[in-house]
Design a protein around this nucleic acid. Structure first.
Lengths: 347, 347
DNA sequence: AGCAAGTGAGCAATCGTTTTCCTGAGGGGA
DNA sequence: TCCCCTCAGGAAAACGATTGCTCACTTGCT
């Protein structure tokens, strides 16, 4: 009697969120049966199941995920580590991943290391402690990065590298097809009849700059041509560099009839210089950029033809591979996502 | 005997991650004692505690967070809902929040609604199911948004709105001080001796455009002046609009000696037009932008003086308020973060 | 020496679900 | 009529850590 009294009037719903025991009580079954009714497991009379479902609806019951996770060992969570802030490149990747994962019941834990190894270890330990089902790692550049390491327990967590691959080929990576992107750009210019092509791009120590230059040149030479200035113009990823480089190119090789630029900022700088020199784009000189960064490509005069890396798709695919890895074990190796040519008025 | 055999050689560590029971066994104490040794609770011989700590170190033990969360009811997780993609504005806010929270042992669950109410409900339910300790909501604009609602159980979760406040004044919001920002801009121009100021900004249906225009004008009139063109030029947040508007302003009010622009893209457009018209900036006409968006402000010729909303700080403060709310209960009301004037060569 | 006070450590309940057994009732066949 | 089989549903043991309560053993004091 005393106990009953302290617990409130009999039949009155307990305060706070309903638990499965409340549902079971209301439906007049045991907790185990209620659980089975919810999960479809076990055989039971349809009528009983319905009574449980009604009770669930009436109480607005939602299972406690901590309890479920404790039991199953799964957290229905994946970690998303971005190694260098959340910038132009990691954001679409992140969105793609979030999209693919969120469609299921998996949530995304965001970890930003700001390029700091200490922070990375800190977050990594945290993720492992939370028993995440997997980890996606993404950097802001395409340069390979050393694999995650240094935390015990990490071995049992599948990891997928997106955009910036792991230096260890045994890891699973999803990257952009830089070779294909460069090929698309060069092919597009060639098919428009341009043969005196200049290439202005970012710093040589960036893999993106090196790779695009190399593959673009390969393709150009494969078609029997070379660079109009005889060399690649490495510099910075900035408009200012684009402007300066365009000047230099016009001086060195006035017969240049197209620019293939390492990114849209450079391309826009080139466009500005051409414009100021009275060169019409694309009639006199065509321009192709890289990245399809709207604010740059669209604001440029004229709007830029450019290569889109499909970053969102990279994130999506990385997420899908991670899901595969979680369910069926890791399928190591690199996977590249093709680029897309976006034609606008600069060609 | 049989059991011992099946469990492996006596003393051999069990496979998988170590649990507290393993630690206790190794240290020769009970599970409860091991727990107390770790948490500093309860009185015990220092030597016993040390034995437990040694065992923890040897096994690389880390507590299972699911078990802890189940027991304490806390998840050490907060949800971060961005309502409109993850863009220019939400990213710094997000980073600020992640920074402030990650310093402790709290992690961030990322939810992106893409402006879709269905998705918002979906994520919200998910967050509540995960028993998050709190939620930060951020939109990409400063327009107020309706408060989160529609999910049972949400009442007990503290929510802080960042950047875009809740329409309900009883909610906790952290926003940018648009009035102060506009004042900073106008004051800066006035103190440089400019009195014929034009204002070009975004669409009138954006609160940011309206507020900055209103407060800027108020301040201008307070100083005894008015807008050089007699009106605010509402339009779009684009460079193209900045270019067109600058043309219009020069035609209407050729004696204009300064532009205050609603964002950096517009400001850059204005700068481009002035440049092409042979007007020197800042000697003939000064320009102040808004947002301090590096890629715009720095690439502009000349680089733009602009207003920085301190978005990262907004995220940080939102996170701090959320932590307060979690620990001490909600402190409703609006909180504004002051802006910062960044002077560059356009003034 | 005997009793009270104090202290170190273990037991067991708890958090909320899932899942494996296991029981008991009812039906059908011999 | 009796036995066996089936199937609905309950009891209880996990999952791993925390914590209040209890017990046993030292001390210290009279």
């Amino acid at each position: 009697m005393l106990v009953t009294h302290a617990a409130g009037a009999p039949g009155s719903p307990p305060a706070g969120r309903a638990k499965l025991a409340d549902v079971a009580a209301l439906a007049g079954v045991s907790v185990g049966t209620a659980s089975k009714a919810l999960n479809g497991a076990g055989r039971m009379r349809p009528e009983t199941r319905q009574r449980v479902l009604d009770a669930v609806a009436e109480l607005g019951f939602r299972p406690n995920q901590h309890a479920q996770s404790l039991h199953t060992g799964r957290s229905w969570t994946v970690g998303l580590m971005t190694t260098d802030g959340i910038g132009r490149f990691s954001t679409p990747v992140l969105l793609g991943a979030e999209d693919a994962l969120g469609a299921g019941k998996i949530s995304v834990l965001l970890c930003d290391t700001r390029g700091d190894a200490i922070r990375e270890q800190h977050h990594l330990r945290n993720l492992v402690d939370r028993r995440v089902d997997g980890i996606i790692v993404t950097g802001r550049r395409t340069d390979p990065r050393p694999p995650l390491t240094g935390i015990t327990g990490l071995e049992s967590v599948p990891v997928v590298y997106a955009l910036s691959p792991s230096t260890d080929p045994a890891d699973t990576s999803v990257t952009s097809d830089d070779r294909g992107g460069a090929r698309l750009a060069v092919e597009h210019l060639l098919s428009a009849g341009r043969t005196r092509i200049a290439h202005v791009t970012g710093p040589e120590h960036h893999a993106a700059a090196r790779d695009r230059a190399r593959h673009g040149l390969e393709h150009l030479e494969g078609a029997g041509f070379g660079l109009s200035t005889g060399r690649v113009h490495f510099g910075e990823w900035s408009e200012a560099w684009g402007r300066r480089a365009a000047d230099a190119v016009l001086r060195t090789a006035p017969d240049t009839d197209a620019f293939f630029c390492g990114n849209d900022q450079i391309a826009r700088g080139v466009a500005d210089t051409l414009r100021e020199r009275g060169v019409t784009v694309p009639e006199d000189i065509a321009i192709v950029g890289y990245d399809n960064w709207d604010t740059m490509a669209l604001a440029s005069r004229p709007p830029l033809t450019t290569i889109d890396m499909n970053l969102t798709e990279i994130g999506r695919i990385a997420a899908l591979r991670l899901l595969e890895a979680i369910d069926e074990g890791l399928a190591p190796g690199a996977h590249t996502v093709p680029c897309r040519l976006v034609v606008r008025e600069s060609t």
